[in-house]
Design a protein around this nucleic acid. Structure first.
Lengths: 206, 206
DNA sequence: GTCTATAGGCAGATAGAC
DNA sequence: GTCTATCTGCCTATAGAC
């Protein structure tokens, strides 16, 4: 009978994931801040109070989504860089993988990077992967500098600020103006592949 | 007695402006999408139904804010450029004036440029000033090209897309990460004054 | 132009039966 | 883990008296 608790746990985990998937649907339709647990319950076919056996509050649902989202984004940018030589080439591949993930997960990306829910602050645990993302791109920048592809100033705080603004600007413009466009055809996402070249123009080596 | 209707009209106009000012306060506190007419009425000291003598719906309040916001932003970027020589210098001054306006009117700027209210589409009338803003920056880009400060490709559609993404990225990062910072001290707004130089590095003349 | 009263909703969250 | 019932509170919007 030792496996019965396992079955229960598995079933419970499935329901948890189902709730989060439906929450993403609702956010895509009604806006990230428009998430309502009642709407989630309706779509899941249960009554709103039953949801509270899985999440103690609406806030907790946001936090679970935030953590899973950060983890998935981290994995996307790491996998993107994995195939390429460290340096500008890996940075290009990683930025593109991240941008594709954002365009494929728009509601979640808004929750992660634009904080559109007044009063919601992610827990430390949920925020942790974001620090790893930062370290990842810092390492790629350092590698590019060591290979002579970028000026050392690119690793400064202001260089990092400009770099993150470049990708954030392209994506926020794409999301606001052409959210449905394919990645290759988007007026703004088209630039993502050329970002390392832009960085090199701003921070030329030597 | 011909002035009595004028007085009434003036009083009414004052109340309209007061309602919009309070609506901005509420949006700043509860998020742009969290605007509630009841909250506005409470702060104004009247009952919610009375508001409907001034605006027929919540949507109409957003639309009035959108139009006034676009006009104010247009005026800001035009005044910013007015004192400088047309070309890159005027573009720098205009971008900085616009960025300062955004940081000083954060809730309104979100309504104008990030569309955070599901279901709200501005009326044609309210959107009109945005077209004038576009023309304004297109003219400044052309002037910079004629003066030999930028490569002609900067005026292409992709050049415009990159330019608007650069400023949008800096501001969205500043708003998300350091909304209270002074313009000169902001990690991201500090870059605004150097944007024309960045553009020139990406699109060098000749 | 202000009010009261009200319609008709929605939401988050809890208590307690089964 | 599900439900019903309920509390409490919010909202947009309208009708109609004054």
């Amino acid at each position: 009978m030792a496996d019965i608790p396992d079955r229960r746990a598995r079933r419970r985990a499935e329901t948890l994931e189902e709730i989060l998937a439906i929450a993403l649907e609702v956010m895509a339709e009604d806006g990230v801040a428009g998430l309502s647990l009642s709407a989630v319950a309706r779509r899941l076919g249960i009554r709103p109070p039953s949801l509270y056996k899985y999440f103690p509050s609406r806030h907790a649902v946001y936090d679970a989504l935030f953590e899973r989202g950060q983890r998935a984004y981290l994995e996307a940018v790491q996998r993107g860089a994995a195939g390429a030589e460290p340096g500008l080439a890996a940075m290009a591949a990683s930025l593109e993988a991240g941008a594709r993930w954002v365009m494929a997960n728009q509601a979640l990306a808004q929750l992660l990077f634009w904080r559109p829910v007044p009063g919601f602050e992610p827990s430390e645990r949920a925020y942790a992967p974001a620090l790893a993302v930062h370290d990842h791109f810092t390492a790629l920048t350092s590698a590019a500098i060591e290979r002579g592809e970028l000026h050392p100033d690119a690793a400064s705080e202001e260089g990092q600020a400009l770099g993150s603004s470049l990708i954030a600007g392209l994506l926020s413009q794409q999301l606001a103006n052409e959210p449905g466009a394919a990645f290759e055809e988007g007026r703004f996402t088209r630039w993502v592949a050329r970002l390392p070249g832009v960085l090199a123009a701003i921070y030329p080596p030597r």
